[in-house]
Simulated assay, not measured.
Amino acid sequence: MRGLLAGSVDALVTVIGGFTLATLLLREKTGPDYWLPAVGCLLAVSFVNHVLLTVPVRASLGKLLFNVRMIRMADGGRPHFWQAVRRWVAGFFYQPVQYLLSQVHMQSDTDGEDLCGLLKAH
């Protein structure tokens, strides 16, 4: 349950932080001149939260709030930068598929394992 709550907080951080940044940077823009850079702002906030914060402290903001840490499967150490990047990119593809599978009761037994050699530790 903590992982779900942490993910929800991270999604809120990304949406609120991304649109706040976009609004500050793109005050005069409208239509496509706003939305394309706004998506870039959302991605930037997400990257900072899920990669740049996770590497030194082992957790994004949501995970910090719910005491969940990301560790390397191999030795329990901190995630490497490129592992965190791969996990961040995989999250755009793997997590929606995992969600859909859970809705039809086909969720994997390896729920805590990650594609990039990282685990969520509680």
Rank of each mutant, 00 (worst) to 15 (best):
T30D: 01
L26S: 02
Q103I: 10
V68F: 04
D109K: 10
F47C: 00
Y34F: 12
V85N: 07
L119V: 12
V48S: 08
D109S: 15
V85K: 00
P96M: 07
S46H: 02
L12H: 06
D111T: 13
N49L: 03
N49T: 06
P79M: 10
G117H: 06
F93H: 11
G18C: 03
H80G: 15
H105Y: 07
A44T: 03
C41I: 03
L25V: 07
L52Y: 00
T23R: 13
T20I: 01
A38F: 01
A90Y: 11
T14K: 11
V9L: 13
W88V: 04
I16G: 01
R78D: 15
A38V: 04
I71C: 07
G91R: 08
G7D: 09
R72S: 03
R2N: 14
R69N: 07
V15S: 15
Q98H: 05
W88P: 02
G3L: 09
G7Y: 13
D10N: 01
F66L: 14
R87C: 12
M106L: 15
G7N: 15
S102A: 07
G77E: 15
G7V: 10
G112Y: 13
D10C: 00
V57N: 09
T23W: 05
E28S: 12
P37S: 03
V57E: 01
H122T: 10
M106I: 10
L65Q: 11
A6D: 05
A59D: 07
E113N: 05
R87N: 08
I71K: 11
E28G: 13
G117K: 00
R78A: 14
S60E: 13
F66K: 12
N49P: 02
V97E: 08
A74G: 11
Q83W: 02
A44C: 08
D111N: 11
V89E: 01
H80P: 12
L61P: 11
S8K: 02
A22V: 00
L24C: 04
W35G: 02
F93V: 13
K120G: 06
M73F: 10
V57T: 06
A90D: 14
Y34W: 09
D75T: 11
M106R: 15
V51D: 00
L61R: 09
S108P: 05
G18S: 04
R27G: 07
